[in-house]
Amino acid sequence: MSERGIQWFRFTAPANFYDLAGRLIPWFAALTIALFAAGLYLGLVVAPPDYQQGDSYRIIYIHVPTAWMGMFLYVLMAVYAAIGLIWRIKMAEIMAKAIAPTGALMTFFALWTGALWGRPTWGVYWVWDARLTSMLILLFLYLGYMALHAAIDDRQRASNASAVLAMVGVVNVPIIYFSVQWWNTLHQGASITVTDAPTMATIMFVTLMIMVLAAWMYSIAVVLARARVEVLERERNARWVQERLEDGRT
């Protein structure tokens, strides 16, 4: 009985995910559009220019959300990778793999917008300081994870090897976060912390939080969509895929 139960679970877990994600994605996509529309309008039109930085500070509305997302997605990817490695849960392996490209993209956005914000405010696009360098390492960790996954043909070995890389790389995330306290750096400290009131105007803070939520919703939608394709690719010969094709529930 129990053996049959386990096999049944294994057979349906990806199918359940496939159906559930298919229902959830449109909602997250709609939320993404609504939040981005509101955030962009408030950030680019309504919010006043900064008294020191003029309009260049408006980069904050994409710089901070993507930087947070890049760090958070890395931790999430490592957690899924660890679950996949330790308990051999197929869906966890798929989620880790599906998160990586979006995490890499978010990290790249943080670096790119940071460079374009650094030029007018610091006078340089890039400096080799602690915050910027540790963020660049995060991007390389993502790219290394993806390259390692792609380089090994055997799916299980690829998943195991890249999971170890993801887990080791987690040490970099607190380094990024605390880099502005531990080292002298050109990058400013945190304006928003859990313990103190934010050191910025209310309209700017609210807009920033809307953009943070928008980045969340986008990441969830696109990661679920990618994981869904990954499930389909692995299970393309399974009976449940045929059933959904016949019912038109794809």
């Binding site: 680019l44 003029g54 980069i59 956005f109």
Partner: peptide, 16 residues
């Protein structure tokens, strides 16, 4: 024009 900062602001938003 973004107060003269248009290359930086739009360079960020459009690339994203």
């Amino acid at each position: 024009a973004m107060g003269g900062y248009w290359p930086y602001v739009w360079g960020s938003y459009l690339v994203m």
